[in-house]
Design a protein around this nucleic acid. Structure first.
Lengths: 222, 222
DNA sequence: CGTGTTATTGAAGTGTATCAAATTGCGTGG
DNA sequence: CCACGCAATTTGATACACTTCAATAACACG
């Protein structure tokens, strides 16, 4: 038996993705799924629309971002290889509360809602694994609100630097992207970075940021 | 057959509680559960501890509150009759990230973790209903972070007034409790209330607040 | 090589936390 | 039932962190 490029069995992100954790369902999933490519900047789904199903990031990086009526955007979550997209709306039976946008050229596979629901019926532990993800997201979201209240902007920038580098190391984040994650403005990010550089915590070369003293940054927000 | 006061079959919060939605399990649940009373101010579970199981609010009001190392507390969620406590930690397999404290004299019933897990095995749709709650909590938590970033303190106070009165009407909230919900200080709440009173949106009689112009308040944060 | 995006810096204004002090209101025990 | 004590509320003054706006510089890209 030969495997095409689109075969789940040879997918690199299979190990970390709860949707593909069941060997005996893999062939069925492989046949049902659709593979799609998105270029950097393209939108995978839009805030306000009805959920279609679940996406899995096979390669690339996707941000979940919410835009208010004033046009200001904030980054809520980031999804890399093996991560699932769209489960919040699926579980809550609500429209998407945010848009999903590719940050780099990405490959995703898609499973329609009807199939997912049948799968949940037959394999409840799969739903439970996604619910576990949901519960952890909730902890992170509530923690983030608290830190927004308690910590000052530079501390949140420090936290953003640590988080973004830890989870998506190679990425070259813009000041604006860091601001949208830290809940502040690009100018404040720049001034915080200048201070961190003076304190010897980071260096800035052109537009890229290198962390010199990780513990020093971590101390700022904990 | 006679029913005791502690019989699930005559429990007022049965209709809204996903844990008691299955008629054919009700007797089993009724036998397994433990009923407990908590006076206002008493703690039901503590941040940092391992989850024991799930609580259901039968009567009263409970706040989920997180306290940081500096002793500042913030209210994350509020639970009234029919609401379940402790599901986040149960799903995420993490310790409690916050404490649960009774705001008024409350009656809760408790089901141990082992029983819940068996129940989930047998009745997956029950787990899915809790996951739906989780997904909605996540939406609310992420929205709250965004509003903390975008809106000014008085707007958040207006929002707190609307939310708290809508969901737990009769309650007489202190300025501090409003502040802990709105992510600000009691002083700022007081000054916001004074402004709202001058604008004819609310009146303050002693320590109680009456909303005069609901739409006017809503407009402040939307 | 030019054009648009991103980054940087400065100045100005303001919202809100913080601290301190006075007052009000409430519950408790005498 | 009143008086007391304590907590909650209120008000004012102060400080400052951060947003906002604007103008310039650096860089990436076609």
């Amino acid at each position: 038996m030969s495997h095409s490029e689109n075969d789940c069995e040879v997918c690199g992100s299979r190990g970390t993705n709860p949707l593909c954790s069941l060997d005996h369902r893999l062939e069925e999933i492989s046949q049902t799924k659709t593979s799609s490519h998105f270029k950097a900047g393209q939108t995978i789904f839009y805030q306000g629309n009805e959920p279609l199903g679940l996406f899995t990031v096979e390669k690339g990086l996707v941000k979940i971002e919410s835009t208010n009526e004033h046009g200001q955007s904030h980054t809520l979550r980031l999804m890399g290889p093996g991560n699932v997209l769209g489960y919040r709306s699926l579980f809550s039976k609500e429209p998407y509360q945010a848009s999903a946008i590719a940050l780099e050229n990405s490959k995703l596979c898609f499973l329609p809602k009807s199939f997912i629901l049948t799968l949940f019926q037959a394999e409840p532990q799969m739903a439970l694994q996604l619910a576990e993800r949901l519960a952890k997201d909730l902890r992170e979201a509530e923690s983030k609100w608290i830190r927004q209240v308690d910590n000052e902007a530079p501390d949140r920038v420090a936290e953003a630097l640590i988080f973004l580098s830890e989870k998506f190391g190679e990425q070259n984040w813009t000041r604006k992207e860091i601001a949208q994650w830290a809940g502040t403005t690009p100018e404040t990010v720049i001034r915080a970075l200048a201070r961190f550089e003076k304190e010897g915590l980071v260096t800035q070369e052109k537009r890229s940021i290198q962390i010199l003293n990780r513990p020093g940054l971590i101390e700022k927000f904990s």
